[in-house]
Design a protein around this nucleic acid. Sequence first.
DNA 1: GCGACAG
DNA 2: ATCTTGTCGC
Length: 229
Amino acid sequence: MNPQEPWPADAEEATALQSRLRRSVTRTGPAAHEIQRLAGLDVTYSKNDDRLIAAVVVLDAATLEVQDVVVHEDRPRFPYLPGLFSFRELPPLLAALEKLDHLPDLLMCDGHGLAHPRRFGLACHLGVTTRIPTIGVAKQALIGEYAEPGPRRGDRSPLTDKGEVLGTVLRTADHVKPVFVSIGHMISLEDACQVTLNSTPRYRISEPIRLADQASRRTLKSRQSHPTG
DNA sequence: GCGACAG
DNA sequence: ATCTTGTCGC
């Protein structure tokens, strides 16, 4: 974890920490063509007990070939509260990242970045903490207004709040619900959309995140108590 | 006050 | 998010 920053004890402290950390988010970083290794991150929770599995899947950015998969079992240390999602998922995701032999060039996470009430969603928190370029790709909006984008893959429309552009509502496949792309850290919104499209060749959800979701679910399922007799 | 509310 | 199989459609 980030030893420089005290971990918040409650929602009020967490909110204050977000407002402070948001200032370190940047919109520039490596050019898109310099990104060779993409990582998708996701967390699956057990309903039976209080365990969770965080997963990171690393893919070759050009071929989308899987290069590495790591998982980490943990327990939630913070409740789920809209707007404070990162305090729940950041600790297990960082622990999983530490299991990688080589850090990836870019992180894609299941949630928002700047498209957040205080402009500091999970993707921003993950990027600022790791100092790795990060993109947020969410399945649902948390804040903002938008027009329905066109029906085809690549069609998009801006996600805005009080005139401020927070992200892009991006159609990743024909006639499928769009996803919500926003900057996490060290990348432009345009590059974030390009990387998202490039890593989403077939399904609605980008391949790195989709595979991380599968890995975390598979792992949790395989570790559930198997009833005998 | 009411509704909305990433995963 | 979690529980949960098949089934309809491209």
